[in-house]
Amino acid sequence: MTFSAPLEKRFARMLQSYPQKRSALVPMLMYAQDEVGSLTDEVIAEIADRLGVTVLQVNEVIGYYSMMHKKPLGQYHVQVYTNISCMLRGGFKVWDHARKTLGIGHKQVDADGRFSLEEVECIGSCCWAPAMQVNYDYHHNVTPESFDRVINELKKGGGQ
């Protein structure tokens, strides 16, 4: 399989960046996942082939990292942080609110594949807690109200 031109360009650069090809495995999987939506068997076989490793070796790696997934997430993957600093400043309140608002639980995707939700560990926003990430986008000092604002924006934004 081939990926989009920019991604192929990125992969080509990666393969030159490392003294040993296999080093590109984790980032390649991450960027491929972002483009394809999940780490499908096809993606796995392709990357294994390009890096000269076995499919098993790729799967071992995928299973290890919490950001890698084999099933598609929602178009907007909402991650609510509840580790200690977030917890102290209302992280769980946001988490409860998120579940209620989106009507889905931890690691679930809503019916139309728009949103998925995950309670996650610390993301390096302790001083601006509680934090949340939608896909790679950061949101600091989240309250139930600001959560709603973000979600409504996304809903309005439609299928972009």
């Binding site: 076995t54 499919v55 098993l56 070796q57 799967n59 071992e60 299973g63 290890y64």
Partner: peptide
């Protein structure tokens, strides 16, 4: 042969076979 691997992590770690 390399037919066995380790998947997932932490307490969920599991030995897995090469063909899923």
């Amino acid at each position: 042969v390399g037919a066995l691997g380790l998947n997932y992590r932490g307490v969920n770690s599991e030995i897995v076979p090469n063909k899923g």
